[in-house]
Design a protein around this nucleic acid. Structure first.
Lengths: 333, 333
DNA sequence: ATTTGTTTGGCAACCGCTTGCCAAAAGTTG
DNA sequence: CAACTTTTGGCAAGCGGTTGCCAAACAAAT
């Protein structure tokens, strides 16, 4: 299957071009360092031999792997697709390779995987980490880390600005005449869950609405489904959920229970995941610019590679916005 | 941010354990090659120094990178999630790192990406490739390749057996009294599209039904939507689509046009993608064991690494099956 | 023409690990 | 106990690049 012609090395080029290997190296990596005509000669020889630099040989002396790791809790969670894509695009654009690792929602798996991968990457993006603050700080000690949707002291991060999306959403519900809201929360330990809840509360109160937190739910379809009873009990006319998955679970459970959406209950999710418009009615949701965030995370990491100091960096924050589809309507009189 | 204590090397261990570096190397990589007590001493020292082998240094002399690439056309296409996960799991289980690359549906991007990544991987899995047969063969010349859902002469592959799922589906429709079917096809060049169409045709004819191919559609929501008019024109009561995305697009367009699903039109998709149960009605679909296929692809690749000859290998074929949800019903009288 | 400065390209060490080869040590055998 | 085999661990040469240092070649300045 395979031919055994070993890949060309700079020595082959050197021989062909009649120069020293070091000259080849310089010609190819340090434009301007050597004479233009020599460089041309080298490049010509390289092309002729179909030369491709051996990344491992290069990584050894330099210590630069040109690879970054992106850790997510669950690859099959649609929230991450765009994050992954944004990161992948941004990385490959500058010649970096992205390796995606999955923690399977387990901090043990995450640690083990990181352990395994760490020596072969220049830095790590923690998309959704199960690690605690101390573990993250420790990791950041070894290789640069960029956190997504979370903040830890001394660690770089990129987080979205939930303010505009939430303000729009609450305003939207207020305009529709809703007075009593509920927030179906996600993981209590989640930074972004807290951020969303605080903003929601602030905005609701400002507009004279009541808001109840329905807490400790899995951020899944099941979690949304499981929260339905408590949503009913809360006697609210509109609910915002921690994410779309929960919103969809809730929506389906409500429909199954004979509660009409949006006539009896308005629902707004978070993230605008794939499939959130497949539902009946299609879900209104607060959109997160995940692809941009992914790209931003990569850029932030790249910057930290060249940074002189060790100051944590913060990516420019992308902004959320409300996407109105069919799951919100006037409050029942 | 970073501490500058360089990672421990086998030389550090050697010094600490009072042996030669080569002994350390052997102790750690060739159990049994050296004395058990010496090995224990070395391991102890390694642990003490928190040693972690430098994969680049290792890859240089051995040429083994312990990394494999998985190429998909579009990371955000939900069809691939499970494929990716299956591959990732299988790879990390045996200490391999998986790098995921996206061709963005472009053979140019695909070639360029492959070009960039090839030197740093041991082999490649082509999940959904835009490359033509010749390009694939050429690639296979350089590094072992495993194709998913496609066959090219002389190249290893793993493809699902569509037979049972399709037989079930056609039988199911026949049992419901349908006499006239349509297949909303995907990309004409797709191996799996052809396979599905042929099987569908064979089964339909065997059960005395007519079947029409509605061809040249994008395998997307839009493609499904765009095929609706032709489905109507075909005057069929049931349709099978190339994939779920198209089925969902078709379903929504049908509903929008006042054609009730499943009362007026039964629809069966392919793949059981994420969100295919979000629709109203939830989509009946022929499920592909994508996660298994992903794992199988990795295993096949690993086998080919150690194979003596250059014979292409074929992963054990996983089997499809029909998943009946709500989008199929009795044919209209 | 001499001094000084700048290009340019070669030399060789090094990055961390693997491995063929060899010799000392230990174990077997008759 | 000599002769032979096996075990064990050291030596050193790579793997394919990068890069500090140096000297030759050339250019500019006095």
């Amino acid at each position: 299957m395979r031919v055994n012609e070993k890949a060309a090395t700079i020595y082959d080029i050197a021989k062909l071009a009649g120069v020293n290997p070091s000259t080849v190296s310089r010609a190819l990596t340090t434009p301007g360092r050597i004479n233009a005509t020599t460089e041309a000669k080298v490049r010509e020889a390289a092309k002729q031999l179909n030369y491709r630099v051996n990344p491992f040989a290069r990584a050894l002396p330099t210590g630069k792997t040109k690879t970054i790791a992106l850790m997510v809790a669950d690859i099959t969670n649609p929230v991450f697709f765009k994050l992954v894509r944004g990161a992948e695009l941004a990385a490959s654009e500058v010649g970096y390779t992205l390796v995606i690792a999955e923690s399977q929602e387990s901090s043990l798996v995450e640690s083990a995987t990181l352990e395994r991968i760490l020596p072969s990457v220049d830095g790590v993006i923690l998309g959704t980490t199960r690690l605690n603050d101390d573990e993250i700080s420790a990791l950041n000690q070894q290789k640069p880390v960029v956190l997504v949707n979370r903040k830890v002291d001394g660690v770089s991060d990129v987080v979205p600005d939930n303010t505009p999306g939430i303000a729009e959403a609450v305003k939207h519900l207020a305009d529709l005449g809703h007075k009593h809201l509920a927030f179906v929360a996600g993981p209590a330990a989640s930074w972004i869950n807290t951020d969303r809840w605080n903003l929601l509360m602030k905005n609701a109160v400002e507009l004279g609405m009541t808001i109840a937190e329905i807490s400790s739910n899995e951020p899944t379809l099941e979690g949304g489904k499981g929260a339905f009873e408590r949503v009913r009990a809360a006697g609210v006319t509109a609910v915002v959920t921690y994410n779309d998955l929960m919103a969809i679970g809730l929506l389906r459970e409500a429909t199954a229970a004979g509660v009409r959406v949006p006539e009896d209950l308005s629902i707004i999710g978070f993230d605008n995941i794939f499939g959130s418009d497949f539902t009946n009615p299609p879900l209104s949701t607060i959109e997160m610019p995940l692809q941009k965030i992914g790209a931003e995370a990569v850029e932030t990491l790249l910057k930290s590679f060249v940074a002189e100091d060790d100051e944590p960096m913060h990516g420019t924050t992308e902004v959320t916005s409300l996407l109105v589809r069919g799951s919100t309507a006037k409050a029942k009189a």
